[in-house]
Simulated scan of single mutants.
Amino acid sequence: MRHPLIIAVFVFIVLTVEAHAQQLPFKVSTLADGLEHPWSMALMPDGKMLVTERPGRLHLIDPASGQVKSVGGMPEVRAESEAGALGLALDPDFASNGRLYLCYSTGWTLAPANRLSAFVLKGNKLSGEQILLDDLPGAKWHNGCRVAISPDGHLFASLGDATAADGAQDVAQRRGKIFRLNRDGGVPTDNPFPGSPVWSFGHRNPQGLAFRPADGALWSTEHGPDTQDELNRIEKGGNYGWPLCRGTDECGKLTDYHPAIAEFEHDRTIAISDLIFYQGDAFPQWKGDILFVSLKTGRLYRLKLDGDKVAKTEILLDDEFGRLRDIAEASDGSLYLATDNGEDQILHVTPR
């Protein structure tokens, strides 16, 4: 027989959770399941979704039906630990040219690397790989590999330090960097280091890139080692400190250091992942805010900004679905979240 006190506590917890859920302006449903470590989502002009799976797969998901189809023509991928098929972005002219950009891990354990390539999607198959950056440093961990297109049409990609931290401070090395390229792979003439794709340096493992619509500024989320995951505003030629400086700490070791806008948290890591600037009408009270997800704590965060400062932080989800890897906004303003637990799903966040 159950003890009355235990029953009472259980009922209290259930009622508390239900009351909290009713206060939230959204509900969460499952769009697709049966996935394995989805890493990056990209919304196509017709509303369908492309999703990379870290083991080396690409899927096409129809939100209207939840149907998941495999896309053929994927390159050979080094899938181990955090390495695999990672960042994905669509060309601004994707509707007419089918071009997309993929950052993925290559080689094997004795010679690990990463690569940024362009492909063309025709029907349900990739073709015509154009390698844009090859032989990028790689490892089992800290590969970065988030991809984004700027408002002015440049291609950006992040790369972690690939577990060799000192290289992040050397602009001649490609580890621990954020890159900027023309979409054909050429190096823009106005990059900060002539002839180099490097846009910023001193990064440990940046896994989120997003451009603020209001001013086109690039922002990034970055994994700290054991504390102080970072939210950064990325400046041209900026040094973000790793491994000499971290978080929002003052740091006299570097004269050109850009400290983080915010850190999460000072005494631990939340394993911060991708971010967006919300622009939709489904949640008008969020417009212009940063939304980001975390792995270790399984959270969805909302940040209200005052200029370049965080004025308010709100946790919208707190480990209800385990690790959260990616976030994307649909054309109707609803949200998609990708879990990263091994047996995974794409979640759909809609107004209540």
Rank of each mutant, 00 (worst) to 15 (best):
L110P: 11
A148V: 12
C145T: 02
G98K: 03
Y104H: 13
N143H: 08
A139Y: 11
P151N: 06
G98F: 03
A95N: 09
N114V: 06
L102H: 14
L132C: 02
L88I: 04
S127L: 11
C145Q: 02
F119T: 00
R146K: 14
N114I: 00
L116R: 00
G128E: 15
D91M: 10
K125A: 15
L100H: 01
H142P: 01
A148D: 10
G123V: 08
F119S: 00
Y101R: 04
K122V: 05
A89I: 04
L116H: 01
H142A: 13
D91Y: 10
G98E: 02
N143Q: 08
G98Q: 03
S117P: 05
L126F: 12
D93C: 08
V120K: 09
I131S: 12
Y104R: 03
A113Q: 14
N124A: 15
W141K: 14
A118M: 11
N114D: 12
A118I: 03
G107N: 08
A89F: 05
N143K: 06
A95Q: 12
A95H: 07
L90F: 06
G107T: 07
S117C: 07
A118C: 12
T109H: 13
L133R: 07
A89T: 07
V120A: 09
N143G: 15
I149P: 05
F94W: 05
Q130I: 11
V120E: 13
L100N: 01
L121Y: 01
D134E: 12
T109K: 15
